[in-house]
Amino acid sequence: MPGDGKVTVIGGGVAGLVSAVACAEAGVRVDLYEAHGSLGGRGRATPAPYVAHEGPHVFYSDLPHWKWLTGRGLTGPVVLPPLRRVKAGFVRDGRLRLVPPAGLARMVLPGRPRTAPVDETFHDWASRRYGESTARTAANALGVVTYDAGTGRLSAAFVWELFRRVYAPTVPTVRWVAGGWQGVVDRMEARARDLGVRIRTGARLTGLPGGGPVIVATELSSARRLLGDESLRWESGHCVMRDLAVRSDRRDRLVAVDLDAGGFHESYSMQDASIAPRGESLFQLDMPVRADESTGAARERLDAFTDLTVPGWRERTTWQRTATAKGRTGALDLPGATWRDRPAIDRGDGVFLAGDMVAAPGMRGEIAILSGIRAAEGAVRAVRTARAARSGAA
Rank of each mutant, 00 (worst) to 15 (best):
V7H: 00
V7M: 01
I10S: 01
G16A: 09
V18E: 05
V28R: 03
G37W: 14
L39M: 11
R42F: 13
P49M: 08
G55Y: 14
V58T: 14
F59K: 00
Y60S: 07
Y60N: 05
L63D: 10
G94T: 06
P101Y: 06
A102D: 11
L104Q: 01
G111H: 03
R114D: 09
A116F: 10
D119C: 05
H123V: 10
A138G: 04
Y147R: 00
R153K: 12
S155T: 10
A157M: 07
E161W: 10
L162P: 03
T170N: 12
L195C: 03
L208Q: 00
P209D: 00
A223G: 03
S231Q: 12
L232S: 02
R242L: 15
R251S: 15
D252T: 06
D258L: 07
G263W: 06
Y268L: 10
S269Y: 05
Q271H: 15
D272L: 09
A273F: 09
A273M: 07
E280L: 07
P288S: 10
R290C: 10
A291K: 15
S294G: 15
L302K: 00
D303N: 14
Q320M: 12
A325N: 09
R328W: 13
T329E: 09
D333P: 00
A337V: 12
I345G: 00
M357C: 15
E366L: 10
I367R: 11
G372W: 07
R390W: 12
A394I: 12
